[in-house]
Design a protein around this nucleic acid. Structure first.
Length: 217
DNA sequence: TGCCAGGCCGGGT
DNA sequence: ACCCGGCATGGC
């Protein structure tokens, strides 16, 4: 079976088992963007606390995120970890959003995918996964998100080499699958779900439900 | 107790 | 072009 067919079969197997995930777990584009930055190398549970703090402080909006002093914002997002780093990153994004789009998300979303991706990557603290998460889940643009779970699951299932980097993996998905926002959305969400449940660093695999499809190392 | 979590940056080689 | 330390909280 060709790799493209395996990727489609992997999706079918996950979808059949777990169904639609209805991602991203956030109510508004603003919340999705903030969550994407806060979840960098961090358990989602801790991000939820930070977002809850922002909501309770009525600070989950672009005006307050711009004007809050560093120390106050850092205190609100403390549960998400790396709070000083992430405060700088949030500030950098927010400053860019005001400078480039006057904090109007509709204007930002109207930017063509590839130029918007380059703009996002130019912001300090916005790397490839964060940029792609924003583009796919907040903007609704067809770009595939790669994360640690994606690489681990595909490696374990021998669909990629261990040394494959972000761009290679992203390109593999995008060249193998139809260019479809909803498919990219569900695929990444399902990979995260399976990763959390069954594909942790160690033990290597605990009751992986996809064993009949894949070839566990 | 130590390892892990939906990364990314900056400095050194 | 790689490699690595730093960043920090909370769950198991």
């Amino acid at each position: 079976m060709a790799t493209a067919e395996k990727l489609q079969a992997l999706y079918d197997a996950m979808f059949a088992t777990y169904g639609p995930q209805h991602w991203w777990p956030g109510d508004t584009p603003t919340e999705i963007i903030i969550g994407a930055i806060l979840t960098q190398n961090t358990a989602w549970r801790n991000v939820e606390r930070a977002i809850e703090n922002l909501k309770n402080a009525s600070a989950l909006n672009w005006l307050d995120l711009r004007d809050l002093p560093h120390e106050q914002l850092a205190e609100l997002i403390r549960p998400a970890g790396y709070f000083n780093v992430k405060t700088r990153r949030l500030k950098a994004f927010v400053q860019w959003l005001w400078d480039s789009y006057n904090a109007d998300l509709d204007r930002m979303f109207a930017t063509p995918l590839h130029s918007l991706r380059e703009e996002l990557l130019s912001i300090n603290g916005i790397g490839r996964e964060t940029a792609d998460s924003i583009l796919l889940y907040a903007c609704g643009l067809p770009t595939f998100v790669v994360d640690a779970y994606t690489a681990r699951i595909l490696t374990r299932h021998r669909l990629i080499d261990e040394t494959a980097d972000y761009d290679e993996i992203k390109e593999l998905f995008e060249s193998s699958l139809p260019d479809n926002v909803q498919l990219f959305n569900e695929y990444h969400a399902l990979l995260v779900h399976v990763g959390k449940e069954h594909c942790r660093p160690k033990p290597r695999c605990s009751g992986c439900p996809l064993e009949s499809f894949v070839h566990e190392v």
